[in-house]
Design a protein around this nucleic acid. Structure first.
Length: 486
DNA sequence: TGGCTGTTTCC
DNA sequence: GAAACAGCC
């Protein structure tokens, strides 16, 4: 064989796990195993200044447990997980020289800093004679593959959805390999504990343990449970935060413990008692995640810059005291406070309530949406650079295909509409649990006798509204009108 | 994937 | 006088 013939079948593959912490539907892993290579799975904790952005505290908690789950699962497949920290290019080079690996495989990521890192590594390692291969699977359709009829990039969701639908079903998920061949002496791993991913305020994330099971098994269980029960009635009931009609798959998707294609296909071939209305609407939500990545890919500053430059002149208020009350769930608007406390206690918030609390921060408090984006990034277990940024801009009105700015949620009527009996509010704002339904979303309008009977003392056991929504709405409209004249 | 307000419609 | 509707923000 000529010396310069690149080996098409590598002997030893470094399998670089990133936000794809799963064995099923993992194209990079499946290919390495199929080609008969010995596989060295590695996870690299990249420094924040590498450009991949700071890891939020809630997601760091999740990552810790997810890596434990992945390591354990790999062990059951005859393999193991090598943990290393540092700039990915250096870590990979050290591992290559230490193991004699002749290839590096990974599944592609789509955040712009990650893309830049991967591109440089691919060029460098290829130059050094390694086989470097990357695979798809983190989103349903790669951003470069969907174009408008005119050849441009989508800026409106509905045409994006139609194009995606028209491009056919996503590929069938690939089963997890039965066994993963491992080299005789795999490299040493860091101790996960040394990474200090768990929060030091221990009693904070403690409450995450009830609702969540990080890792691939937890993801699959969550999906099965959702398809079994939550999906029925999804279209109409998904907006009711007191009910269990949303999938809660977002944190699993954020770290790739399950692939979006697996989720898509789980809603196929259902029996007749499933309404197509329900699973089509569910898929549409899944595709918003793709749309967000599409936007981020073509607008890398999505989390820091207004998509619509018109908003650059918006007179945001500097109000750290109000911001803190919002963060702590002490606004005096029960649905807002319930949402913010659900976020703090569980690392997650129901989507309808995310829209309400975001509208409140932006339009009632007139605080820059970037403050909200930052808080969510730090406290959400599902923090995702694309979805989070795109969704905040959507609510702010500055984003692509965004809600018009003048669509200002009334937190009281939203509460009454989507949590009519206050089930959700009572769960997260227990000091209001004995309020009658009629006043559960507007305790400040309740007669004194009603408050006394419910054990509520406004301003003491529960805050008075920190702003008057009617006035706040007028102020927001005025600020927006001012923008138009710019 | 709204809300507000004035107006009409229908008991 | 509530409920539905339209036009506007």
């Amino acid at each position: 064989m000529p010396a310069d013939a690149a080996p098409s079948r590598p002997k030893t593959v470094l399998l670089w796990f990133r936000k794809d912490l799963r064995l099923a539907d993992n194209a990079a892993l499946a290919t390495a195993v199929d080609e008969g290579a010995e596989v060295i799975p590695v996870y690299i904790l990249e420094p924040e200044d590498a450009g991949t952005g700071p890891l939020g505290a809630a997601q760091a908690w999740w990552l810790h447990h997810s890596l434990e789950a992945l390591a354990s699962s790999l062990m059951h497949h005859g393999s193991g997980l090598v943990l290393r920290r540092g700039p990915a290019s250096e870590v990979l080079k050290a591992l290559i020289s230490g193991t004699g690996a002749d290839a590096v495989f990974w599944n592609r990521r789509y955040d712009p800093p990650g893309i830049a890192i991967d591109k440089a590594i691919k060029a460098d390692l290829t130059e050094r004679g390694l086989v470097v291969r990357s695979f798809a699977g983190q989103i349903l359709h790669e951003p470069t593959k969907l174009k408008t009829g005119a050849g441009g990039n989508f800026r409106v969701y509905t045409p994006f959805w139609k194009a995606l639908e028209a491009s056919g079903e996503p590929a069938e998920p690939i089963p997890a390999p039965a066994r993963i061949p491992s080299p005789a002496s795999p490299p040493k791993s860091d101790a996960l504990e040394d990474w200090a991913l768990l929060p030091t305020k221990l009693n904070w994330a403690k409450s995450f343990e009830g609702p969540w099971q990080p890792g691939e098994t937890g993801a699959q269980k969550r999906l099965a449970a959702f398809v079994q029960s939550g999906l029925k009635g999804y279209r109409t009931r998904r907006d009711f935060p007191g009910e269990a009609h949303v999938s809660m798959l977002s944190p699993h998707l954020a770290l790739g413990e399950i692939s979006p294609a697996s989720v898509w296909h789980a809603t196929r071939g259902l029996s007749e008692d499933y309404s197509s209305e329900d699973y089509i609407h569910f898929r549409k939500e899944l595709v918003w995640r793709d749309f967000s990545y599409h936007l981020l890919f073509h607008f890398p500053d999505l989390s820091t810059r207004n998509w619509s430059a018109k908003f650059d002149a918006f007179p945001w208020r500097d109000a750290p005291d109000l911001l803190e009350k919002w963060q702590k769930g002490q606004t005096g608007y029960p649905i807002v406070d319930a949402g913010m406390r659900q976020l703090w206690q569980t690392g997650w918030m129901h989507n309808r309530v995310r829209m309400i609390v975001a509208s409140f921060l932006i339009k009632d408090l007139l605080i820059d949406w970037r403050e909200g984006e930052r808080w969510f990034r730090d406290t959400l277990v599902d923090a995702d650079p694309a979805s989070n940024a795109a969704s905040w801009q959507w609510v702010a009105g500055s984003g692509a295909d965004a809600a018009p700015f003048f669509r200002i949620f009334n937190p009281t009527s939203q509460g009454e509409k989507f949590d009519p009996e206050g089930v959700y509010v009572r769960r997260f704002v227990p000091e209001l649990k004995d309020m009658p339904d009629k006043f559960i979303h507007k305790p400040s309008e309740a007669p004194l006798t009603v408050l006394r009977e419910a054990g509520v003392s406004l301003g003491k056991t529960y805050p008075l509204p920190i702003v008057d929504h009617g006035k706040a709405r007028d102020a927001a409209m005025a600020a927006f009108q001012g923008l138009k004249g710019e």
